[in-house]
Write a protein that binds this DNA or RNA. Structure first.
Length: 621
RNA sequence: GACCGGGUAGCUCAACCGGUAGAGCAUCGGCCUUUUAAGCCGCAGGUUCUGGGUUCGAGUCCCAGCCCGGUCACCA
């Protein structure tokens, strides 16, 4: 970098960093200010400082300026707004607790402090000290004021050289937000709030489990064999030992070894790594809670997780009714999740029968059942379109949703398309009219129209694709081929995951899952086709599995061998784990809880990336 | 992986049928002691994601690639 910190360097327009470096050099040279500060004692978080405001003292001081009982505070924060009004300067400071305004009046501070205040840039970190008062408009404000023998009234704690985000829109590009989370966190207070909620949720989970006698442990993340789940691992290499190592896909097998060793209740909250695709619900590294309780069962851990989630929700949110709100319109509630106990418990077979009319009998689905399932899968896609139409054309949407079959959508396709086209034309006319008028105050309206047009266009695209009979047939063929080659157990699980799980918004424990897909759980004594487990779905996704853990080493070995032979996923058998079971593991209940998804559910985040501080991003380039 | 949308000033976005690339905010200079996206005056700021092609002329059209988002698929 050849931009010296020299105020005489000729200015290149638009070079924000250069401007700031020159400004910094002036502060150093002319005011003797060190722009990277040092230790500062006695600072209050902004929210705490604000809480100290004393209205009576403020009022008294306003009546009689010689009386000043206003509380004095010292605060620090990043400058997020700056309004220089000549001889009075307002700065809005922000920290992780909130915002607080500072006012610097030329009359109340020494000239060099006022000069500094004028030089302060957005994103600089400053400290301010002075009495807490309010302004004409009632905003609680620190009135910067030096004190004999200490506070300067305003100091620079850290100069920021980078260009600040746009002050009104903030940082909005999702990519930049995830890449530059350090900016996102202060530019978008919602992000800070969500992340703090995440932290509190995890704290409360730990509190809860400790309160019930669980000990938190740490087990290997680098494993020479990856086990405990079916997933592709990340592979790495240990140089000194010259051996491959895997990043763990689950801690399960180690936690169970701890039960063998004599721990009765253990849990671990930490990262798992799965080398699979990314989606709004999948990040390659994600945080899981796993807990094991000796002498428990899937039922004891179901009770536990139910109580745990409710307790956490009450402590952090004070309610069991979780509302998700529209990103555009905070008034609009898009989804309500009711966590009130007791949570429904229903077997997978009953659920499938109830929703689809498919009576699963441990055999492959009959030709007729397959047709039912296929048409349900197709209808589901259409249903989404029906739901999206609901707001703009309730009667048409109602008709489609009620008919609920692919044929109904095909029959009505001209009407649907005609409606969408008419709507688009209307919106575009509206859009052009506003744009031609060039009325700036309607900018928000323009943006709204633009979004609606966008939504409708994608809707029309989706619809075209769906009613394209050859396309639909191709998709159906692919599905039929795959589905008819599945085992009965896989068919049941497939149907559940595709068609039922996404509709389970309120908490539902799905029980009696085919044991064939769950090798680490105990088979049901009365009907070994099913395992003694639950899969808890909330918010349309699986959030927690719970097992009666399998502790018979012979059965466990058989399951694992079967899995290895059956699946393409190369997974070596963990012989040492089987050894451990031979030593003897007490019967136990165990459960997992996907922390990221839990936080999404509780905070209404629509993407897992919104609840992870630094989600995985492809390197920039 | 497939489809759709997007990539233009530091930020947020415009640019009609292919004809000199604009605005707001931020920056820079000036005015202003109760602002709340403060206001007013003025200056400046561009390899239109990259590389090819068509054309007298490309931000715009075509081809290839990169990146982001959405939907679907894959994957527990």
């Amino acid at each position: 970098m050849n931009t010296p910190n020299d105020p005489r360097t000729p200015r290149t327009p638009g070079d924000i960093e250069g401007d700031r470096r020159r400004k910094m050099a002036r502060l150093r040279d002319e005011l003797g200010i060190e722009p990277y500060g040092g230790r500062i004692d006695g600072l209050l978080p902004l929210a705490e400082a604000r809480a100290k405001y004393d209205a009576a003292a403020d009022e008294a001081h306003k009546q009689d300026a010689t009386q000043d009982a206003r509380p004095r505070v010292r605060v620090a924060g990043r400058v997020v707004q700056s309004r220089v009004m000549g001889n009075l300067i307002f700065l809005s400071l922000r920290d992780c607790s909130g915002d607080l305004q500072v006012a610097v009046s030329k009359k109340s501070v020494p000239p060099e402090v006022f000069k500094l205040a004028k030089q302060v840039d957005l994103s600089d970190i400053v400290t301010a000290a002075g009495p807490l008062g309010s302004t004409k408009t009632g905003e609680i404000t620190v009135w910067s004021q030096g004190a004999p023998g200490g506070d300067a009234g305003l100091t620079l704690a850290c100069k920021s050289l980078a260009p600040p985000p746009e002050k009104f829109h903030g940082l909005t590009d999702p990519e930049q937000r995830y890449r530059k989370r350090y900016v996102d966190l202060y530019a978008n207070p919602d992000v800070m709030r969500t992340m703090q909620l995440r932290i509190r949720i995890i704290d409360e989970i730990r509190d809860y489990l400790r309160g019930r006698g669980f000990l938190e442990v740490e087990t290997p993340m680098l494993q020479s064999l990856h086990g405990g789940a079916a997933a592709r691992p990340f592979i790495t290499h240990h140089n000194a030992l010259d051996m491959p190592l895997y990043l763990r896909i689950a801690p399960e097998l180690y936690l169970k070894r701890l039960l063998v060793g004599g721990f009765n209740k253990v849990f671990e909250i930490n990262r798992n790594f799965r080398n699979e695709g990314l989606s709004p619900r999948h990040n390659p590294e994600f945080t899981m809670l796993e807990a094991y309780e000796a002498f428990g069962s899937w039922e004891t851990v179901a009770d536990l997780v139910e109580d745990l989630v409710c307790t956490v929700a009450m402590k952090v949110f004070g309610t069991l009714e979780i509302n998700h709100r529209d990103a555009e319109d905070a008034e609009k509630i898009t989804r309500t999740i009711n966590l009130k106990r007791p949570w429904r418990r229903v077997s997978m077979v009953d659920l499938v029968r109830e929703e689809l009319g498919w009576s699963f009998n441990k055999k492959r689905a009959s030709a007729q059942d397959v047709q039912t399932i296929l048409s349900a899968i197709q209808t589901r896609s259409f249903r989404k379109i029906g739901l999206r139409l609901k707001e703009s054309n309730p009667s048409l949407a109602g008709k489609l949703l009620q008919a609920g079959s692919v044929e109904a959508y095909r029959r009505e396709k001209d009407k649907v398309l005609a409606f969408i086209r008419a709507e688009l034309t209307h919106l575009e006319q509206e859009f052009n009219r506003l744009q031609n008028d060039g009325r700036l105050e309607d900018k928000a309206e323009l943006e709204r129209l633009d979004r609606q047009i966008n939504t409708l266009t994608t809707l029309m695209n989706d619809f075209h694709r769906l009613i394209d009979e050859s396309g639909a047939k191709r998709e159906a063929d692919v599905f039929l081929y795959k589905f008819t080659h599945m085992s009965p157990a896989e068919q049941l699980v497939e149907v559940y995951e595709k068609l039922i799980e996404p509709t389970l918004i309120d908490p539902t424990f799905v029980t009696h899952v085919p044991s064939a897909v769950i090798p680490l759980a105990r088979e049901n004594r009365d009907d070994p086709f099913f395992a003694d487990v639950y899969e808890l779905a909330i918010n349309g996704v699986e959030i927690s599995p719970g097992y009666s853990e399998l502790n018979d080493p012979d059965v466990q070995e058989r399951h694992l061998r079967h899995q290895v032979g059956d699946r393409e996923e190369q997974q070596e058998i963990d012989g040492d784990f089987l050894e451990a079971l031979k030593v003897g593991m007490p019967p136990a209940g165990g459960f997992g809880l996907g922390i990221d998804r839990l936080v999404m559910m509780l905070t209404g985040a629509t993407s897992i990336r919104d609840v992870i501080l630094f989600p995985l991003m492809r390197p920039q380039g």
